[in-house]
């Protein structure tokens, strides 16, 4: 059919074509579909990354309902995130959403506040205010034992000892007698029974940020 020389050329061409088809087949099987959509990566990975669940409660999540909270926080503690002391609020938010859906207009909401009230405020305070090498001297710091001696609080052994003299939301204020029982819910609809919270607080929340 072909001369000897032509045949060799045709064989070479055939091998090249087969290799090209083979390469395309393997490439299409192994390279993910959206690869190269935006750049040298899988385009669908962007969506996966953006759709990941957001776990931490944001400041906006808290102030959406507790609107007076922004003004209640003193200047020195305005940057302290609610979750540093109160822990994660996702369960509370879910419970509130359910309660709101079920509540009649004007009715007082009772949301599940379990685990939100810290049981060991001392450790949380010392987290930032314990004296330590490396901390800026302008930042208020104490050596706990000396601070107890100097100030002689009513109950120095209590894990809530700091609150006997300081208001966590606004350290510049003097604590009132009902400190700790004060309900910080913003809207009247959000007012929950103050006694329910400390009773339901879980121990692990103390170490929780």
């Amino acid at each position: 059919m072909f001369s000897r020389d032509t045949l060799h050329l045709w064989i070479l061409a055939g091998v090249l074509v087969l290799a090209a088809v083979g390469f395309m087949t393997v490439r299409n099987l192994t390279v993910p579909p959206s690869f190269g959509q935006f750049g040298h990566y899988r385009g669908a990975a962007l969506q996966t990354a953006a759709d990941k669940e957001r776990k931490l409660t944001t400041r906006g999540d808290c102030t959406a309902c507790h609107q007076t909270l922004k003004h209640e926080m003193g200047k020195s503690h305005e940057r302290v995130h609610c979750i540093e002391c109160h822990g994660q609020g996702k369960a509370h938010m879910t419970a509130c959403a359910v309660a709101k859906a079920a509540a009649k207009p004007g009715e007082n909401l009772i949301c599940d506040k379990s685990g939100l009230m810290p049981t060991n405020i001392r450790d949380i305070c010392l987290h930032c205010h314990q004296q330590m090498v490396g901390r800026n001297p302008k930042h208020p710091q104490i050596i706990f034992e000396e601070h107890m001696k100097d100030n002689d609080p009513k109950d120095p052994k209590s894990p809530m000892v700091c609150m006997q003299c300081h208001v966590p939301h606004d350290p510049s204020q003097e604590p009132s007698d009902d400190a700790g029982d004060k309900d910080d819910a913003a809207k009247p609809a959000d007012a929950a029974t103050p006694t329910a919270a400390p009773a339901a607080a879980t121990p692990e929340n103390g170490g929780d940020q």
Binding site: A50, L56, T58, H77, R79
Partner: peptide
């Protein structure tokens, strides 16, 4: 925290930092 910044939030570390 790409999943937060794409929705207009700050990264978790920025959000919780008490000293700015």
């Amino acid at each position: 925290c790409y999943h937060r910044i794409e929705h207009g939030e700050k990264p978790a570390c920025v959000d919780v930092c008490p000293t700015g």
